[in-house]
Design a protein around this nucleic acid. Structure first.
Length: 267
DNA sequence: AAATACTACAACCGCGCTTTA
DNA sequence: ATAAAGCGCGGTTGTAGTATT
């Protein structure tokens, strides 16, 4: 009998369940030495009786460098709420905007903590006209940082966190000039880790056409697997009425997401 | 102190998309 | 052109830890 909570796939003699420290060490050491080349074939030479899928999951969600574990900050909570509002359950897309967080972590956080806050409460969808105005806005932070770094025509890509979510300003008008030089496929296909890019399924059913247009029109970088440039700007509409659960209607227009997140975070 | 309920999170599964042969 | 393999995503489940009765 295997250790508690751990079973073996009798056919393939693959181990399932919780990872031991030794397994973690083996996987980490192997990847450090050889890199990631083929998940399903790496397990054996790494000395692991695990499926490639299991190895990948463990690495992506736990062992990967620069991951942050532990409590979400107020800002991260704000970001999750706001992004979820527009993207729905696109956990990888949401996670890509949070430095060092995984889709699994974001999903778990939503399902265990935030979901119940929103359960049964309607999140009012922004009107189309409002969404349209949002489409071309650019996160001021992204703008300035890319200008600083760039000085070239190549879109730069620094992992950027949404900030100033309470300050829904800086909306600009959309224009064809903002279409990137990359095709949407180029822009969205990302070198290395496509999992961190937006894909064709990005837009959930309640993302407005205009928002989708925005996504396809942006200058996405191909240099950074983690980046989807300026999507945060999508969510900076100061006028979109969003009803946060537990908040009276009359507060909807005046209260910021930040207020809501603070309230949520502190309780 | 024990039993039960609840919460948080790691991990698995199935599906769909992309890449490769 | 197509089948197979590989990969990533989102949904779900299992379990350990904590709170409550």
């Amino acid at each position: 009998m295997a250790e508690l909570g751990v079973v073996l796939d009798e056919k393939r003699r693959l181990k399932k369940g919780a990872w031991s420290a030794e397994e973690d060490q083996k996987l980490t050491a192997y990847i450090k030495r050889h890199g990631i080349w083929n998940w399903s074939r790496m397990a054996e030479p790494a000395g692991l009786r695990r499926s490639g899928k299991s190895c990948r999951l463990r690495w992506m969600n736990y062992l990967r460098p620069n991951l942050r574990h532990g409590n979400f900050t107020k800002e991260e909570v704000e970001t999750i709420i706001k992004l979820h509002e527009f993207l729905g359950n696109k956990w990888s897309a949401i996670a890509s905007k949070l430095d060092g967080r995984t889709d699994n972590e974001v999903k778990n956080y939503w399902n265990t903590r935030l979901k119940k806050q929103f359960k049964g409460k309607s999140m009012q969808k922004p009107r189309k006209s409002e969404a349209a105005r949002v489409c071309d806005s650019v996160d001021a932070n992204h703008e300035s940082s890319s200008q600083e770094e760039a000085g070239s025509s190549t879109p730069t890509s620094t992992p950027v966190q949404l900030s100033n979510l309470g300050d829904f300003t800086g909306i600009q008008t959309s224009s064809p000039e903002n279409f990137g030089s990359l095709s949407s496929n180029q822009a969205i296909g990302v070198l290395g880790d496509k999992g961190n890019s937006f894909d064709n399924n990005l837009c959930s059913s309640y993302v407005d056409d205009e928002v989708q247009s925005y996504l396809w029109a942006q200058n996405f970088s191909v240099e950074d697997a983690h980046m989807v440039q300026d999507v945060g700007a999508l969510f900076m509409d100061s006028t979109a009425t969003v009803l946060y659960p537990g908040w009276p209607l009359e507060m909807a227009s005046s209260a910021s997401l930040e207020d809501f997140a603070v309230n949520l975070w502190e309780n």
